[in-house]
Design a binder for these strands. Structure first.
Lengths: 213, 213
DNA sequence: GAATGTATCAAACGCTTGTTTTAAAGTCAA
DNA sequence: TTGACTTTAAAACAAGCGTTTGATACATTC
């Protein structure tokens, strides 16, 4: 006889479904993921998805969690270091969330996926996660270059920084074929963060100098 | 009575199928594109795909054409300008192929798509298009920084440059929502190319200085 | 203990996908 | 004109998808 109460069992099924869905969605994206695979890996009947979440799309929406990404930005703003240092910290933590296999960071990878494969919830993701991050980086860039650049140039600087970071996640299948020996362990991520940081700070300074010679 | 000969009619069907397939695949990617939509837009019977190409995948492979991308690299190497100038030219032309709505440039966009959505022909694409481009950029970087950086650092420099470029294509759905007024006309692409060029050259110089102080 | 509401399950539904079949139409040389 | 061949066409096929159904087992309440 099973001793657990009814509610704990229910939540167990629901939570297991959510946990597996997060993994599957982040692995294969929304469209490519199938309800059947999620249920199989969660050892749950197919009908459970519609029973607990009413649809695949609602399950996908329920797996979204932008807190790690937003708290990352907040935490970095709390420190009293200079803007350059804060940018370096952001790049490092952002890359960690993007590339580390940590299950808590997985949420952040939706952002990278969503860029290439828009789903019905793209609007929500842009509004609640991507836009704040872009604004956060834009503010940092403004501080670093001293508010002297145009809006268009500011936008391009933000794209340059985020583009470098996201490429590692986005182009992973290709990178793996180009450099099969490459692994994203902590040391490698650290090196990438330092590279992008130095590269970007130098770029920003050049842009600032160009606009105000 | 139709006056055209048999062979010209055949080729017309085949070619029309190929032309439409190129557009549809570049619009929606491989998986999302359907044989039915391609045939409908080409005003051709569904069975034509398997009759002329034997499968959807073979049709997709037949639409691949990396010549524009490879001739771009060759053409830039032919000039006798310095490496920095050649890098700026590459960034400009690469962005044009990535962002311009020119139908000849559409082929190049497969590369960006393939990064995020690997298909059965990814291996061929990497081998014949992506790897040569990476190598081309790596050679330019080597010339610019004077061969003084490690293999890992060289790889990261290439990623930084290509990552910035590809982001504009890759994140287009998101960018469109963040900046609805933004259009990729020739003037805008020109500005982006100048930005990425300056940004990257400054970054490369900093990396070179770091490694050899 | 009967009634009620919840959770699970196998099965099927309706739909779309890529692919195949089968027959008809057209082409062209002998 | 006949016969061989290529091209087109509508229909059907098998497989996969998200979703729904209806029955069953269970826990809780009266």
């Amino acid at each position: 006889m099973i001793t657990e109460t009814k509610t704990s069992l229910n939540e167990q099924t629901r939570e297991r479904l959510l946990a597996v869905a997060r993994v599957v969605f982040s692995e294969n994206g929304f469209k490519q993921s199938t309800v059947r695979e999620i249920c199989r890996r969660a050892e749950v009947n197919i009908a459970a998805v519609n029973y607990y979440f009413s649809s695949k799309e609602a399950l996908f929406a329920a797996t979204l969690n932008f807190e790690p990404l937003l708290t990352l930005c907040k935490k970095i703003n709390q420190g009293s270091v200079c803007a350059q240092e804060r940018l370096l910290n952001f790049i490092h933590d952002f890359l960690m969330q993007l590339l580390d296999k940590n299950e808590f960071s997985m949420q952040c990878q939706f952002m990278a996926r969503e860029l290439a494969e828009p789903t019905p919830v793209l609007g929500k993701i842009v509004q609640e996660a991507i836009a704040p991050v872009h604004q956060f980086v834009a503010n940092l860039v403004c501080e670093i270059v001293g508010n002297k650049i145009s809006e268009a140039e500011l936008r391009r600087c933000v794209f340059s920084i985020l583009g470098q970071c996201v490429y590692y996640r986005h182009a992973q299948p290709v990178i793996q074929r180009l450099h099969p020996q490459l692994r994203y362990d902590h040391r490698e991520i650290e090196s990438i963060a330092i590279h992008i940081g130095e590269f970007s700070l130098a770029g920003l300074k050049k842009i600032a100098k160009n606009q105000c010679p």
